[in-house]
Computed example of a mutant assay.
Amino acid sequence: MTERITTDDAPRNDNPYSQAVRAGDTLYVSGYGPVDPATSEAVAGDVGAQTEQVLENVDRTVAAAGGSLADIVKTTVYLTDLNDYDAMNDAYRARFAATPPARVCVEVSRLPDDVGIEMDAIAYLGDS
């Protein structure tokens, strides 16, 4: 049994995918770019600022399923420029200071709306 998770607190669009899907105790969060849900526009600033917005979007989606960033066990980070790796890591480290999840980070040629970062996540909600 799966459950589609939706929230107005994170960006939504008309594309054919869910913001997140819960399957048992596991939550699969779709990729988020640095879009402010209030304006539906990408936030200004460097990849550090963009990473902060991405993590806020992920956090809000996990919260809609009853969890928090502490429940995330794996992320995948997509950067359009690996020269932004340190800036992304600084923002990422600030949100996952205690127990960072497993992670993959790859450079991609382009992301929707020409943003510098996108991230998806998997959370374990068995204790939530």
Rank of each mutant, 00 (worst) to 15 (best):
Cys105Phe: 13
Gln53His: 03
Val35Pro: 01
Ala98His: 12
Val108Tyr: 05
Thr51Glu: 07
Thr26His: 07
Glu41Tyr: 07
Asn83Ala: 15
Ile117Gly: 00
Asp46Ile: 11
Ala94Phe: 11
Gly66Val: 05
Gln50Leu: 05
Tyr32Gln: 07
Thr6Glu: 11
Thr76Lys: 14
Asp84Phe: 10
Tyr124Ile: 00
Tyr78Gly: 06
Ile122Pro: 01
Val104Arg: 14
Val73Pro: 07
Gly24Pro: 04
Val115Gly: 10
Met1Asn: 12
Asp120Tyr: 00
Asp46Arg: 07
Pro11Glu: 05
Pro101Gln: 07
Ala23His: 11
Ser30Lys: 06
Gly116Tyr: 00
Ala44Met: 07
Thr76Leu: 12
Tyr17Val: 05
Asp25Val: 05
Ala38Tyr: 09
Asp14Glu: 14
Ala44Phe: 13
Val43His: 03
Ala42Gln: 07
Gly33Ile: 08
Ala38Gln: 14
Ala91Glu: 02
Lys74Pro: 00
Arg103Phe: 15
Pro112Asp: 10
Ala42Ile: 00
Tyr28Ile: 12
Thr99Tyr: 08
Ala91Asp: 02
Glu52Phe: 06
Arg4Leu: 13
Asp127Ser: 15
Arg103Lys: 12
Cys105Tyr: 14
Ala49Ile: 01
Arg110Cys: 00
Ile5Leu: 07
Ala65Cys: 06
Ala49Cys: 07
Glu3Cys: 10
Gly126Lys: 01
Asp8Cys: 08
Phe96Gly: 02
Gly48His: 08
Tyr85Asn: 14
Ala23Asn: 11
Ser30Arg: 11
Ser128Ala: 14
Asp113Phe: 13
Pro112Phe: 05
Val58Glu: 01
Leu125Tyr: 04
Ala102Gly: 11
Pro11Gly: 02
Asp59Met: 04
Asp14Phe: 14
Gly67Ser: 03
Asp114Lys: 00
Gly66Ile: 05
Ala91Phe: 03
Gly66Asn: 10
Gly67Phe: 01
Ala91Tyr: 01
Asn13Thr: 11
Ala65Phe: 03
Gly126Pro: 02
Arg103Asp: 14
Glu56Asn: 14
Arg93Trp: 13
